[in-house]
Design a protein around this nucleic acid. Structure first.
Lengths: 233, 233
DNA sequence: CGAGATTTGGGACATATGTCCTTCCCTGAT
DNA sequence: ATCAGGGAAGGACATATGTCCCAAATCTCG
């Protein structure tokens, strides 16, 4: 982690994500800007939580590790997102480990400080409510989906989410095979089983494995298999 | 559903659950008190959400139904709880069906009205944040737990939650077998499989099936099996 | 009390998923 | 080019879970 002392840049991010009302004038001096390298942890499960972060640039991975050492990837997130909100409000130790996937920039503010100066600031509270309810909704969906459908369906859904970006026509739909372990942990299965399912979809012509990537071959069939689309954050 | 026009009783509930600051004077005339019979639905998945309810008495069951007709019980809740908060904030149709288990009393307020008069009221916003983050945390735990542990462990955990009430010494630890279908749906498995697991635990002497109830025989072993306790709301 | 209805439990089989370990394939160092 | 090492894929087997259906138990009402 490195701090960037550049209040101009910080303000630019506030504007970009429409956060000027949320962090109003009295709060501004309390904000800091930090960058994290890919692979670096923003916070670690179990540690005490003293900072609240707002992700303004880059992509993060959120995961949890069970006492037995199993990893479960909760999600990947893009800006704007808040990290540490639950812990901030409920006064808990950090629930999930958060790791930078790409180079990441966050706005950070000390939790105690924020409580002192922002607890009555309605725009901030509304912003947090907005973010948290969105998270909740996604998680709720994710839970039902994982519990109710087999891996095949979850994989189809995940592939569609990862390989297509409606806002970006030319986006190439593929998944690096090196990411398969993460993928397995995300959809809640083992690497082995994921491979088994990929092979099956591959034999049915829905996907193709080549050159270190998994490519979508038949998007329409995949969509039919997925039913509804999950994992869209 | 029946409306109770008794502002004294309503105020008593506000006091009981420490909600006087949350619903301050200007909001009071907008609140109504409703009662629901056991089995009656407070709201139904997919319907439009115009009311926000605060559960002040009784027990509710929250569940969702998949397009294929499968039921997944999300949770059982006791007061104080908020119903429709996510929908209220995100302007969504109702996500889960909520049903009264015992006779239920709720305070209801129209969503649009609340937005108009309460959107800047920090205590209300903080109250919602408190409730929602708690929900989120529970759901997060629930998700990991369901994804990472087999039915046997989930059942052990559930039994411990249902059969013991630390605040009530004399509470009898048992589960009516007629509730087994709900139990199965709650822990995300089939009725059949639940029976299989019960039989196994029964053969091992952890539980006993008799007289239409499932009794805990060996709490210590169950706790060891459960590892950590989930389902504690 | 007894026949049919309803609830509850379980058998048989199929499928989904996990674990362990081996094999294959690539890459970099020598 | 050869070999060691590590990541990636897959075989073999065990376990977990789902589905279908029937049997046993219980209840209901005449």
């Amino acid at each position: 982690m490195r701090e960037i002392k550049d209040s101009g840049l910080l303000h630019q991010y506030l504007v970009q994500h429409d956060l000027e009302q949320v962090f109003h004038e009295p709060l501004r001096p309390l904000l800091n800007l930090y960058v994290f390298e890919p692979g670096e942890a923003l916070c670690s499960q179990g540690a005490s939580a003293d900072m609240l972060y707002v992700l303004v640039k880059g992509k993060i991975k959120i995961y949890t590790t069970s006492p037995e050492g199993k990893t479960l990837v909760i999600s990947f997130k893009n800006p704007p997102e808040v990290i540490g909100d639950i812990e901030y409000i409920r006064d808990l130790n950090i629930i999930n480990t958060v790791e930078a996937v790409s180079p990441v920039t966050v706005i950070g503010i000390n939790g105690k400080t924020l409580k002192r100066y922002g607890d009555d600031h309605a725009p901030l509270l509304r912003f947090m409510l907005d973010i948290i309810t969105k998270k909740f909704y996604i998680k709720s969906d994710f839970l039902s989906f994982n519990l109710m459908y087999p891996v095949e369906v979850r994989l189809a859904s995940y592939l569609l989410s990862v390989c297509y970006d409606e806002s970006d026509e030319g986006f190439e739909g593929r998944l690096a095979t090196s990411e398969l372990t993460d993928t397995a942990n995300l959809i809640g299965t083992s690497y082995r089983h994921l491979n088994r399912v990929i092979r099956k979809l591959s034999e049915e012509g829905l996907v193709e494995r080549s050159g270190g990537y998994l490519h979508v071959r038949d998007r329409a069939l995949l969509e039919q298999l997925a039913g509804r689309n999950l994992y869209e954050h």
